[in-house]
Simulated scan of single mutants.
Amino acid sequence: MKVLGISGTLVGSKTRILVEHILQQLQQQYPECKIELLDLKEYKLELCDGRPTDQYNEDTQKVILKIEEADAFLIGTTILHGSIPSALKNLFELVPVSAFTDKFTAFAANGGNPLHYLAIENYVKPIASYLKMLSLPEYVFALSSDFDGQNRLVKETKLKEVDQFVEHYASVLQQFYKIKVGS
């Protein structure tokens, strides 16, 4: 069982920090799970233009393969102006729908405006639905104020929320993939 955490932004560090924190918690809750982080900052993805996957550059092909090989996802994004970054949207366009189909997905986002959580419900989840992902109903949304000056997630209420989120996600993954493998 492999969970791929995706830090889906090219700006800032809070998204990656949030995704890493959740993945570390998930590894503690579900130690038999293989965890990997995919940070879009570390790859030079080409813009999707509809050509076959094998005609994109090596980085783009590597990222698509990582997604195809994953069993589940934790997708992290920053919310900018009420939407997701173009790098994440491009990723969704590059990867065949079949790579996401019937794979459990959880979301984590960060933003500066408390109302930016609405972008998960109104923008991210519809994309996930179109891509046929199985989405965890809850998600983590962190404000800038949940981090300290060194961008560490420190707000006690947010840390507890993450713990509960991870506990539920780990439970769902264990139940779903046990049933899926056993059927």
Rank of each mutant, 00 (worst) to 15 (best):
Q150C: 11
R16A: 12
G111I: 01
G112L: 05
I67S: 01
I17S: 10
I120G: 01
V162P: 04
P85R: 03
L136T: 11
E58Q: 13
A170E: 04
P126I: 06
D39V: 15
L26W: 02
E46D: 12
Y117C: 06
L4W: 00
N122R: 04
A170T: 08
P52A: 15
V95T: 09
L115F: 08
I17M: 08
Q174I: 06
Y117K: 14
Q55D: 14
S183Y: 07
L153G: 14
L118N: 04
E68K: 14
Y139H: 14
E68F: 10
K125W: 00
F104M: 00
L115A: 06
A70L: 10
P137M: 00
G8F: 02
F165C: 06
E32N: 09
G76Y: 05
C33T: 03
V63Q: 01
T105R: 02
I179S: 11
E32F: 02
T78H: 15
S83P: 01
L18T: 12
V63A: 03
A70Y: 05
Y56A: 13
G8L: 07
G8S: 02
D54T: 14
N113Y: 10
V140L: 02
A108R: 08
N151P: 09
E20W: 07
H81N: 14
L38C: 13
S7M: 03
Q27G: 02
L38I: 11
Q25I: 01
A128I: 01
E167M: 10
L45C: 02
K41E: 14
V140K: 04
F147C: 07
H21V: 14
K160E: 10
S86D: 05
G76M: 05
T15S: 11
F107G: 06
Q164H: 15
Q29P: 09
I127S: 02
C48I: 04
L136M: 15
K34F: 00
A87G: 01
K103Q: 00
F73Q: 04
K180R: 14
N57L: 03
Y169T: 02
P126F: 04
L159H: 14
L10W: 04
P31S: 06
A70K: 04
E161H: 13
S183G: 12
K103V: 04
L134Q: 09
G149I: 02
Q61S: 04
Y56Q: 03
G12D: 15
E42T: 11
A72S: 10
F104C: 00
I35Q: 02
D146C: 15
N113T: 09
K160Q: 14
I6V: 05
E167C: 08
N57E: 01
G82L: 02
L45Y: 03
S83M: 05
F92N: 09
N113H: 11
Q174L: 12
A99T: 09
Y43T: 02
T77I: 07
L134P: 03
V11M: 13
Q27R: 08
L37H: 06
N122A: 07
F176T: 04
F165G: 05
V3Q: 03
V124I: 09
L80D: 11
P52N: 15
F141H: 08
M133L: 10
G12Q: 11
N113P: 11
I6T: 00
P137A: 01
L159F: 10
Y169C: 07
F104H: 00
L173M: 07
V172H: 13
V154T: 15
Q164F: 11
K14W: 06
V140I: 15
T101V: 03
